[in-house]
Design a binder for these strands. Sequence first.
DNA 1: GGCGCTGTTGTGCAAGCGTATAATTACGGT
DNA 2: ACCGTAATTATACGCTTGCACAACAGCGCC
Lengths: 208, 208
Amino acid sequence: MTGDRRKFRREGEERRREALMAATLELVAEGGTAAATTRAIADRAGVTAGLVGHYFASKEDLTRAAFGELMVRFSDLSLQAAEAAGGDPLARLAAYVAASFRPPVLEPTRISLWAGFINLIRHDPEMLAIHRATYLRYRDQLQALIMALPGFADPVRARPLAIACNAVIDGLWMEGGLLPDAFGAGELERLGLRSVGAILGLRLEEEA
Amino acid sequence: MTGDRRKFRREGEERRREALMAATLELVAEGGTAAATTRAIADRAGVTAGLVGHYFASKEDLTRAAFGELMVRFSDLSLQAAEAAGGDPLARLAAYVAASFRPPVLEPTRISLWAGFINLIRHDPEMLAIHRATYLRYRDQLQALIMALPGFADPVRARPLAIACNAVIDGLWMEGGLLPDAFGAGELERLGLRSVGAILGLRLEEEA
DNA sequence: GGCGCTGTTGTGCAAGCGTATAATTACGGT
DNA sequence: ACCGTAATTATACGCTTGCACAACAGCGCC
């Protein structure tokens, strides 16, 4: 009668931590940080709530780890697209920009995650540090691509250009993510390429 | 001995609702939506928790009302700056852009509020509707300013330009708000003017 | 094949949440 | 002056949360 205790398998520490972080990210994407309760996370990861405390000192700790994981995992996606575009600097930049408006960078999941975590950044110094590192890394990639263009080698000139290009990409990305039906198919990508081109004084549309 | 019941004054319905909404906004700005509990809101507004239920059907209802209030209150700030700039279309546009990077539009409070509410937009249809209306209103203002420029009267051409200009402003605004110390004083405003100018093929820097 | 280590479970607790409701009291009408 | 009414308070209830802790059991080791 009382033998209904749950069966379980022992897993390595790494596997369990990853499963718990993945479950956290799924839940944040679906319902914001409020939906990522300890019990819901454990349930999603196929364990019981008590185990969460065994692998993470606190729920805050788990949240931070999951956020960091997410950022690392996605940080080089656009760069990979650029490198796949070949050796021409203009084509590489165009590919980088265009990739920001296509899956897997522009995904409903990613926007939900970003929206769920963004308010934590303002109140948790460690979260802010992760965000800062990710943002600067992304911007540096963009700046390197710009400096590879003929006549753009000066970093003092390239820095503000990279900031502005990054801003217009982020702005379009955010608006497209929050109001998907306010824009036509492919409109954001086209606008992104044209705007970045305009800021740099180039034409990127036909490069993508 | 038992006469320690709290003294109170009767206020009009409007005053109380406004006080509760203001308290909600303050708390969201300080600690995100999680900090805006019924009891904390009531405390901040100088009443007891029970009264919240008397003026708002639910906490969700109060949150929505507060968000709407906030958006209405700030929706025309940049436009006022444009109108104060006189009759020259170029100067008006420059003033509008520049105002986006100065108080009271660019304030830590506003960024905190935006960050606190942004994840609710993704899961509450009414919140999304408020956001959509505000965003489109802002963009339409920008488009009208652009169409007032000589040679930009065509709305089919002005629409994507307005979207792009709005995006770069939003992107810079967001990044500046989340990482204030990553940018020099006045750098964002200068960059905003230059970028919007580049997108439109104009020079705005010396107009502000 | 038993034993010990520790990953894992189940339970419970204190705190805080939103909200419903009865008791109180301020205030305007008469 | 007082009386009705509605604004306001105080209390309580059911629920959920994060977390602590003791008991259990899978798995490697001798």
